[in-house]
Design a protein around this nucleic acid. Structure first.
Length: 374
DNA sequence: AATGCGGGGCA
DNA sequence: TGCCCAGCATT
């Protein structure tokens, strides 16, 4: 029998996914992490529930921001059954300020599914994990590897950048071809042991060393394996993302008072801040266009009120919108709240709430700022 | 492949 | 200011 071609090409230096040997690469990763690992609250345990909470919170959210949220959340809900039994409003209250509130509602829904379908035991296969709401390929791989030590790859912001530089990938990263290549690379890299530690180490290197701007190549444990570094192209790779075109918007928020109550609205499932409460908000053409606001309020809620003084102006961004939010007081005149179906079958989305008890409600960040002023 | 979804950290 | 962040779901 003639030797096959693949057999004759199976020298280690040919099959290694990185420049240099894979074994050396892996040991460089482990050694660096052993001395540079950060102490983070979710690294104190491998409980899949806690790993899961941290991974959801960390989606598109920086480590520094998540720390306190993670502590509060897991203190309030130590076990998946505690989360499953909670009111969604309480879950959202603990999520308030983190953003991407769909994460919190999907987390809650997944907790219920784990209790009902898996008898409270967190699922153990990648496919089962990924079938839970809010869990995609990255998060499933992270949980499977970190909590269970399974040989599952991960790819997220830090490792995308790191991998692109390691293999000198000078293409736009968001295309499906790039994603396919990078996922394959992530898989080819995996060791046969301590996969969870390995994956976390790669993210940590991406985060602390292989930074977006001015990466610290001189201190990088993987420089010897890095194509971009060897070519002096670490500042060109990865290619910059497409810039977002911001759209300026002017909105008005109304603090409608009736004795010691204020008028609030709960955001519907299909809109921004779903499930959270907010002061009545309307888009206006410009900062002078306030005359129609009373009519818009009456149209939307059934309440008639007279425009009062300007409280404050809040500038904030939501996804691609740059919002200038004009906040005005109003005084209730007459009218009753229009009955309207709420997010989860609640009788209405409009409610009068005691102004001194707004701390219990989940509010949007601008809503919270405004609530503190009034 | 493109879009919606938040808010804050940081140079 | 602008860029970026341990992504996911939908279209």
């Amino acid at each position: 029998m003639p030797r096959t071609k693949s057999k004759s090409r199976s020298k280690p230096e040919d099959s290694s996914p990185v420049s240099g040997s894979l074994a050396a690469f892996q040991s460089h990763v482990f050694a660096w992490f052993a001395t540079h690992k950060r102490d983070l609250p979710w690294r104190e345990s491998q409980d899949p529930y806690r790993v899961w909470i941290s991974e959801i919170m960390l989606q598109q959210t920086q480590v520094a921001t998540v720390k306190e949220y993670f502590r509060r959340f897991t203190a309030e809900f130590p076990h998946v059954s505690d989360l499953a039994a909670a009111e969604e409003q309480q879950v959202l209250r603990l999520w308030e300020g983190l953003g991407y509130y769909r994460r919190a509602r999907q987390l809650h829904a997944a907790a219920k599914e784990i209790v009902e379908r898996y008898d409270g035991q967190f699922p153990q296969t990648v496919d089962q994990i990924q079938s839970l709401p809010g869990i995609g390929r990255y998060t499933a791989g992270a949980i499977a590897s970190i909590a269970y030590g399974q040989k599952a790859p991960i790819l997220e912001a830090n490792t995308q950048r790191l991998f692109a530089r390691l293999i000198g990938w000078d293409h736009v990263l968001s295309t499906s071809a790039s994603q396919k290549r990078l996922w394959q690379f992530a898989e080819d890299l995996l060791p046969d042991h301590d996969v969870g530690i390995f994956n976390q180490a790669l993210m940590e290197i991406g985060s602390l060393v292989c930074t977006p701007k001015s990466p610290n190549c001189s201190q990088c444990p993987l420089a010897v394996h890095c194509q971009a570094y060897q070519q002096g192209r670490q500042d060109e790779i990865p290619q910059p993302k497409k810039k977002i075109e911001f759209i300026p918007v002017t909105e008005i928020a109304l603090v409608v008072r009736r004795k010691n109550e204020v008028l609030l609205r709960q955001c519907g499932q299909e809109e921004r801040w779903a499930g959270l409460w907010d002061f009545p908000r309307f888009t206006v053409a410009n900062e002078e266009e306030l005359s129609g606001v009373a009519g818009q309020l009456q149209e939307a809620s059934g309440i008639e009120a007279s425009l009062g003084s300007h409280v404050t102006t809040i500038k904030h961004g939501v996804t691609k919108y740059r919002i200038t939010l004009l906040c005005h007081e109003m005084t209730y005149q007459k009218g009753r709240l229009r009955p309207e179906a709420g997010p989860d079958g609640q009788p209405r989305v409009w409610q009068w709430r005691d102004a001194s008890h707004l701390t219990d409600l989940p509010l949007s960040t601008t809503g919270r700022k405004l609530a503190k002023l009034v």
